[in-house]
Design a protein around this nucleic acid. Structure first.
Lengths: 336, 336
DNA sequence: TTGTAGGCGTTATCAC
DNA sequence: GTGATAACGCCTACAA
């Protein structure tokens, strides 16, 4: 079933059918009604390959999401989708694995889907470094700052991981904690892990405290299991920490379990602070203190920046979205 | 940059370029090397729109995933992806929202992507009822049984939700529980909620116990928050249950919290059993008893059924994959 | 082994 | 307001 068939069926020419299907003017009400009826009856669907192949002017916006399991990205995507719904910008979403090169993928999809701009939900700075030049359309990277790259069509929206981690630790220091342990990802391969770690170190140093990058840090996956393994490892090293900073709320769940297994109380013996402020944290026992990732604000802002660049040719901006610390029950004053 | 440009650049004709790009035979090594070098240098990428539009024979397999937030589906997708990697079947994945019609979408994508077959990860039987006829390629529905529909090209792989819920409740009855409460989705709109509920009722009835579909059931979302709200509601109704069946592990997390808020111990005062056996359950305090969804087995089996239908014209099959109950700490004998 | 040309389903530019 | 018709980029007979 093609528009040719529809044309034959209704007695009009393909051009008229196409005009109806695309809501173009200069079509009689009669023709429109007849063709729409035939479409309805036959369940006809436009072939997007042919459409995209032919269509000359770009109209759509592209979102490239790296890591489909990431719940924060999923939330942001939802915001973008609802914001764009009903506008004149169709949305294309593409899901990528961590290993794939998101910038190359973007380049191909921009051409194929006639995209006006791209939002990268997550991304690796190295890929932008090597492949972003001459992308041709405005883009926004969400999560990392792309300021250092200096591309004039690449904006970025992020939270200041460095400052967030620092403030989190400062708050715990203010509660009297002196001995910290940290669980996170690989500081070499994970930008955010490195930045958060640096924030921790900065806060410690500023307070005249010390933390050992080898002994007080556990490198694990961002999962409950990772949190469990990491905490067990830290505990076995016998470092006697009273505060545990996990780089994700998921890790904190595993940390809770490991501490329980060692008969350590939260926050009585160990204060635990997570990261992301996932909704699940509110229901844990004890309720989890966490660094809030303002997903909605980040999503909204990135879309604004992109549309501003598309519609008004606005220049690239790099913005840190304000974060907040959410204090709940898993942190407290250190025991005397 | 098109294959025309490549042809001009290398001095060969577009036909030769196309043959190289598609690994067709009858191309001299010299030509292949020259063209591949040019491709590498220019970073050329085939336009998939044009390719798919033109390509006559189908090669790919389509996976339609409903509800991108669903962690079980994400796991199954991973199994399918790795299984298919390196085979002659490219994989197309499409993510859909709950409200969209997955069968219509499949119909369009089959045509556009030249798919040989489809795996539906989740799906609504009503949509299959109304739109599946004459889909044209073999398909497998994962999660629900499609046996009642009787389409000869639609297989299904599922776990017997009915039996699983029944066995879960039977096990708790064997521990001495008599008063049950259940938290799940809307039994009208959610097939699995209805089937699980029916399993619960069956077990209760068989044991000579009663359960009230109004008073002992809370309809909520499949989330920690839903579990919390549902448990609070049940508690406020003052039904004095000693066993709580939640239709998802996520709900169980919220249930734990609500019980704690009422100074009720798990499993001392109330035994809690979840569903899905997510990895997080292992780390909860107490560790969560749950109905295991054999995601890997389901994914493997669905792919086998599909490939068997594609390659050997095998007829549609409907298979229940065996589930297991994983007993951990959140369930126990009822207090005397 | 290589080149040529028709056509996939659609949009857009012409005439009418 | 409507109908032809030339592309879009590619694959694939078929011819050379």
């Amino acid at each position: 079933m093609t528009i040719k068939d529809l044309a034959a069926k209704t007695g009009y020419a393909v051009g008229t059918v196409s005009r109806v299907l695309n809501n173009h003017p200069n079509v009689s009400e009669k023709a429109r009604a007849a063709i729409l009826a035939a479409v309805e009856e036959s369940g006809f669907q436009l072939n997007q390959n042919a459409k995209q192949l032919k269509q000359s002017h770009a109209t759509s916006i592209l979102v490239i999401l790296k890591g489909s399991g990431n719940i924060l990205f999923a939330e942001m995507l939802e915001v973008i989708q609802t914001s764009l719904h009903g506008t004149r910008y169709p949305l294309h979403v593409d899901y990528l694995h961590g290993a794939d090169n998101e910038v190359r993928r973007a380049r191909q999809l921009i051409r194929e889907k006639n995209a006006l701009g791209v939002i990268f939900l997550g991304g690796n700075l190295e890929n932008f470094q090597s492949d972003f030049a001459d992308l041709g359309v405005p883009a926004v990277l969400v999560t990392n700052s792309a300021e250092s790259l200096g591309f004039d069509n690449l904006s970025s929206v992020y939270i200041d991981d460095h400052a967030a981690a620092r403030q989190a630790v400062e708050a715990l220091i203010a509660m009297g904690h002196k001995n910290f342990a940290v669980i996170g990802g690989h500081r070499l391969y994970s930008d955010i892990s490195r930045m958060r770690w640096e924030g921790v170190v900065e806060a410690m140093t500023a307070a005249g405290l010390t933390i050992d990058p080898e002994l007080d840090y556990a490198t694990v996956y961002f999962s409950p299991d990772g949190g469990y393994q990491g905490t067990m490892e830290l505990l076995q090293r016998d470092r006697h920490f009273t505060a545990l900073f996990t780089m994700s709320d998921l890790m904190a769940i595993g940390a809770f379990r490991a501490l329980e297994d060692h008969n350590l109380e939260v926050p009585g013996d160990v204060s635990v602070i997570g990261y992301d402020n996932l909704s699940v944290g509110e229901f844990l026992i004890p309720r989890l203190t966490s660094v809030d990732q303002p997903t909605e604000a980040m999503a909204r802002r990135s879309l604004q920046l992109l549309l501003d660049a598309i519609e008004n040719g606005a220049t690239a901006k790099h913005e840190a979205v304000p974060f907040t610390l959410v204090f709940r029950e898993s942190t407290g004053k250190v025991k005397e």
